[in-house]
């Protein structure tokens, strides 16, 4: 993927470039005080980066509950990127350290649950580092593109068909949760 060229519109050809039309969906949780501002800066500076991230602004990387990360994967994300202030710079003093410890532990949990740990990435990006937003987004996009789809929801649904057949045979409507 090319770097600095100013391209103000989303690269639809990039969307079509994925094999079988597949493009990775990545959820990014960016701290309001640093990475989110940096992403804004990247936009204003017209830095081009992969269109695969859906950015969610949080007040601090320490606000990213591990439930958000698992929920993102369960609902169709193939990668999660968390951006926080550099060590020592968190507005809430310790939030980014909490994020670091949680991500460290989440990496191990994810691997036990069959999800490659490279799909979850934590980056320190200050408000002035627009180019680092671009690098981080491009890198995780490439990583998860190589790792391929996860499709957790539809694969779980495929498994659940073993139940539906049986319960419907009984004339009972099944309400499948989860």
């Amino acid at each position: 993927m090319q770097d600095d060229t100013v391209i103000p519109v989303p690269r639809t050809e990039a969307v079509q470039a994925g094999v079988g039309g597949w493009e990775p969906k990545i959820v990014a949780f960016f701290c309001n005080w640093c990475t989110y501002t940096a992403a804004d800066l990247a936009g204003v500076s017209r830095l081009r980066y992969a269109p695969n991230v859906r950015v969610i602004r949080v007040m601090c990387s320490g606000r990213v509950d591990p439930q958000f990360v698992l929920d993102a994967f369960a609902k169709g994300a193939v990668g999660v990127l968390i951006g926080g202030c550099h060590p020592g710079d968190c507005h809430y003093i310790e939030g980014n350290y909490k994020a670091l410890r949680r991500v460290t532990f989440l990496h191990r949990l994810l691997e036990s649950l069959g999800i490659e740990k490279e799909r979850l990435r934590l980056e320190w990006i200050s408000a002035s580092e627009g180019d680092r937003v671009r690098t981080a987004v491009n890198e995780i996009t490439e990583t998860v593109r190589q790792l391929g789809p996860l499709d957790i929801r539809s694969r779980n649904a495929a498994l659940d068909r073993e139940v539906e057949a049986r319960v419907h045979a009984h004339g009972e409507e099944a309400i499948l949760h989860a």
């Binding site: 994925g18 079988g20 998860v144 190589q146 789809p149 499709d151 779980n156 495929a158 498994l159």
Partner: peptide
């Protein structure tokens, strides 16, 4: 889980 039916990236 069963394999994804999607073409893998």
């Amino acid at each position: 889980l069963p394999k994804s039916t999607r073409n893998g990236g």
